[in-house]
Amino acid sequence: MDDILQTRDLTVRFGGLLAVDNVSLHVRPGTFQSVIGPNGAGKTTLFNLICGIYKPTSGRVLFKERDITGLPPHRISRLGMGRSFQITNIFPNLTVLENVRLAVQSRASVGYRFLALASSFGEFTDKARAILGQVGLEGKEQTLANVLAHGDKRKLEIGMLLATESELLLLDEPTAGMSHDDVPAVIDVIKRIKATGKTILMVEHKMEIILAISDTVTVLRQGAVIAEGTPAEVAADPLVRSAYLGGMAV
């Protein structure tokens, strides 16, 4: 099977800092791949390169065998790559329903119709409601997004991601900043998405999540890949253990 996402020798340099160093990823369709690494390893930067927010210094990004290096983020998004962010990234003063509805609308080609009424596109609203059910936010449709509890905001983000019907989802620390009690509900949502056959690339810190749901784990340190393999292989790798223990002898 061909890779849905490939990076070839992807490198980005910010001034003197080599943030991502020759990273070559191969993500196969329908798999769940995690990217881990200590703080500052370049995980989020790697995501930003893949989805077009940064342009690489060298190297290429291929999505569905198409070279997408240098395309603007909205174009890449429309090709079928969805992205969630490490810091909560929603439309704060719009309702929960409207947040998801906007994500649904982004995939329909309504174009720049500025004299039609948004409320006349009932199918968007229906679909948005269905998605809110999937991520466990039913009954909160009319709440303003910024008054949601943190865990619910993360669920809303995942809902927005689902609404874009992307084949590949990039999840940047979906449980970041979440209280311990909220984590299982979000993992549950992620597992359900995985079960629908979507390809997921996730950055995460919490080892128990990574070990529980990943097919493949890639370990970054100082921008470079130092290990790759199944969760069990990676957990046993001495290099990985030293990276996580700050280079102390193990």
């Binding site: 989805c51 983020p73 909205h74 998004s77 429309r78 969805g82 992205r83 962010f85 990234n89 929603i90 439309f91 704060p92 003063n93 719009l94 409207e98 509805r101 906007l102 994500a103 609308q105 982004s106 995939r107 948004a118 927005m160 874009t164």
Partner: peptide, 17 residues
Amino acid sequence: RVLAAIRENEHRAQALG
């Protein structure tokens, strides 16, 4: 509605496509 989304969070609107 998209304009309101841009007002609220430009990066998110862009990430949605």
